[in-house]
Nucleic acid binder design. Structure first.
Ligand SMILES: [Zn+2]
Ligand SMILES: [Zn+2]
Ligand SMILES: [Zn+2]
Ligand SMILES: [Zn+2]
Lengths: 130, 130
DNA sequence: TGACATAATGCAAATCTTTGCGTCTGCAAT
DNA sequence: ATTGCAGACGCAAAGATTTGCATTATGTCA
């Protein structure tokens, strides 16, 4: 797998950003790359994102933004709770989720690849307001 | 919230199908409704699905089909493991997941609304083949 | 270096999905 | 029954994403 110039630029986009909060949609990535690659074709970005997801460099998730978001895969896994009312995003340490994944692996002989879980609900503040 | 004719037809689509395996994309639903509603506009279907998801009649998930799938919300929650290689779908009883959700609710005061979790990985058979 | 195989890209068309806006329909108060 | 309102719908345009195919770039091997 050759590391294309576009892939490198996408990685650069994420670099320097805090891993847990840098969630970009394909469009956002496309628009952020426009200045450096004025002539780049959207399909090139979409294909690069697909490749990078497949090879585990980035992850793809639905965080309720209406479009899938991509995130760099770091050393430490993390997950999120997203409030459907105020859209607040809470980050969960992997310790919260690992026991479940381990148990599923054990029970079903299933090797988990999901590495960024996003769970929806209502945060304490929004629950009180109702 | 009035129950529109389109909503009723969508519910009919799911009725009679086993809850845990009837996962349809918006397109599939649109095409299945075509015979009964030859003149229906795609946007009407998309909007109905959005309403029904918001009101909790159906759920929306990514099951790796390339497009979101909708499923009727039944009495009993369930979840899935999806093999990324052979696309096999394993159904999990809610008992497997409920403890995690309960713990998150307790710990963060968060009321979970996610009711159909889909986790990706590699099934035992595909792991052996590698 | 030169030829070849493979991967990446551009481009255009096809799809899929969303959105704005005007119209239509069902329900309820009068 | 008539009116008024809100929700549902059609339609067309915009926007987002995917796909097929031709072209270009890169790495490998002789
Ligand atoms: Zn994250
Ligand atoms: Zn909230
Ligand atoms: Zn299901
Ligand atoms: Zn498999």
């Amino acid at each position: 797998m050759r590391t294309s110039s576009v892939e490198q630029l996408i990685l650069d986009l994420f670099a320097g950003q805090p891993v847990e909060t840098a969630h970009f949609t394909a469009q956002e990535i496309y628009l952020q790359l426009k200045p450096q690659l004025p002539a780049v074709n959207p399909s090139t970005i979409y294909r690069a994102l697909e490749r990078m997801t497949r090879s585990g460099k980035i992850s793809i998730s639905d965080m309720g933004k209406g479009a899938a978001v991509f995130e760099i895969v770091g050393k430490e896994r993390h997950h999120h709770l997203v409030c459907e009312t105020c859209h607040q995003v809470i980050t969960l340490s992997d310790d919260t989720i690992r026991p479940l994944f381990d148990e599923l692996s054990r029970q079903f002989g299933f090797e988990m690849t999901t590495n960024h879980l996003v769970l929806f609900g209502h945060c304490p503040a929004c629950r009180r307001k109702k």
